[in-house]
């Protein structure tokens, strides 16, 4: 079976992981309109080549980022989300301003 290297748990069978889709910059939920939100939610680059994606190690619920080649089915790199994201998104803000 294909093996993926989890930044938290080390090398594990690919069947322990769930695919989370492309890493895309999220618009600010407090100010975004419905169209921009729908674009972010649904539209995909669906790249043939090297992509950067969210993955989850299911048994430990650990989300991280992986770089993969979607043509050759090679996993190039995996790292913790904290290496890229260093601030929290406050989802409650929008509700409060309404």
């Amino acid at each position: 079976m294909k093996v993926m290297n989890c930044p938290l748990n080390g090398p594990r069978n690919i069947s322990e992981f769930a695919w989370g889709g492309e890493v895309k910059p999220m618009p600010d939920p407090a100010s975004v309109d419905d169209k921009v939100w729908a674009d972010w939610l649904f539209l995909e680059n669906n790249e043939a080549g090297v992509v950067r994606e969210w993955w989850c190690h299911v048994p430990t619920s650990f989300w991280f980022i992986a770089e993969r080649n979607t043509i050759t089915d090679e996993i190039l790199k995996t790292y913790a989300a904290g290496d890229v994201f260093n601030s929290r998104v406050e989802f409650s803000k929008k509700a409060e301003t309404k």
Binding site: G21, L43, E44, N46, E47, A48, T70
Partner: peptide, 18 residues
Amino acid sequence: GNTSVVAKMAGFRLPIKT
């Protein structure tokens, strides 16, 4: 399966995963 690749030539993205 190549829908997104060809649509990219036309300049638009789609809610499609291959």
